[in-house]
Amino acid sequence: MDYNKIRALLELYWEGETSLEEEEMLRHFFVTHTAALPEDLREAAPLFRYFQAEKEQELPAWEIPRVAPLPGSRPWQHWMKYAAALLMMAGAGYSVQQYIVRHNELSAAAWQQDTYQDPEKAYQEAQKALELLSRNLNKGTEQMEKLAYFNEATDKIKRN
């Protein structure tokens, strides 16, 4: 290639005014040119050879990991959520059931606690309870008798 053309392109290159094609031409020239270069072109040669070496340089091998399918695309992928919810519901149900069974057992035990094994003592306790009931009932009857007198008096007044 004509050195003058390279000089002109280089000036544009240093100014940042070259196109990608022109830069490719310069790189190709400096990489492939084996004969001695004119002095004014020598400064650019290592740079373009460096760019070429960088382009060709193999980077460390890296097995790029496959991008895992991201959640949200298929409903069945949420199975763990559903399983957890189901487990929680089963747990809650079991707890409630256990509570009811235990509660019933405790109620039955409490009911059985006041029974008496000795019939004599049971009789005495029952008698005491009935006496208490009787006393209270009599109190009520006395009040009712007073009321009866009052009604009788009212009837007499009405007749007269």
């Binding site: 990489v31 290592p46 740079l47 050879r49 460096y50 070429q52 070496a53 340089q57």
Partner: peptide, 27 residues
């Protein structure tokens, strides 16, 4: 480690590698 262009002459290869290293440092 910058690899110079294939160069049969070891002296020239070493020199080229040295130049590549310098350009690398400049950049």
């Amino acid at each position: 480690e910058m690899e110079a262009a294939h160069q049969p002459d070891p002296h020239l290869a070493a020199e080229q590698q040295d130049v590549m290293g310098r350009v690398h440092r400049i950049i």
